[in-house]
């Protein structure tokens, strides 16, 4: 399963970004292979519709689960329609690496 985590930076010790559509980076974690890849969010500074475009990207990437701090209504609408699971984590300064460790351990 492909899982995306919104991230403030492009490294494993970057703090996870509480915003989805306007997150700085996305960490794409492939559960089977254990490979992680960081993608820059091209829509982070868009005037509007960042959530919509980012959700579109998730569908294109074939992601099944997205982890972020919140999802706006437009993003939620699209993610729901394509059966992508959304996970909202409370704000406690976790790094992307720590989040992946938790996912591995479950």
């Amino acid at each position: 399963m492909k899982i995306v985590i919104s991230s403030e930076g492009a490294e494993m010790n970057s703090v996870f970004d509480l915003r989805f559509g306007r997150a700085a980076y996305f960490c794409v974690y492939n559960e089977e292979s254990g490979i992680t890849e960081f993608l820059k969010n091209e829509h982070a500074d868009d005037q509007g519709g960042a959530g919509t475009k980012t959700s579109e990207k998730m569908v294109e990437l074939g992601v099944q689960k997205v982890i972020s701090g919140d999802f706006g209504p437009k993003a939620k609408d699209i993610l729901e329609r394509f059966n992508i699971q959304m996970v909202i984590l409370p704000d406690n300064n976790r790094t992307v690496g720590e989040i992946i460790e938790t996912l591995k351990g479950k």
Binding site: H43, D46, T52, K53, S55, E56, V59, E60, G62, I78
Partner: peptide, 12 residues
């Protein structure tokens, strides 16, 4: 304005 969503892979 990012108002259009087109996802070719799923014909959306």
């Amino acid at each position: 304005f990012n108002a259009i969503v087109v996802i070719p892979t799923v014909k959306f």
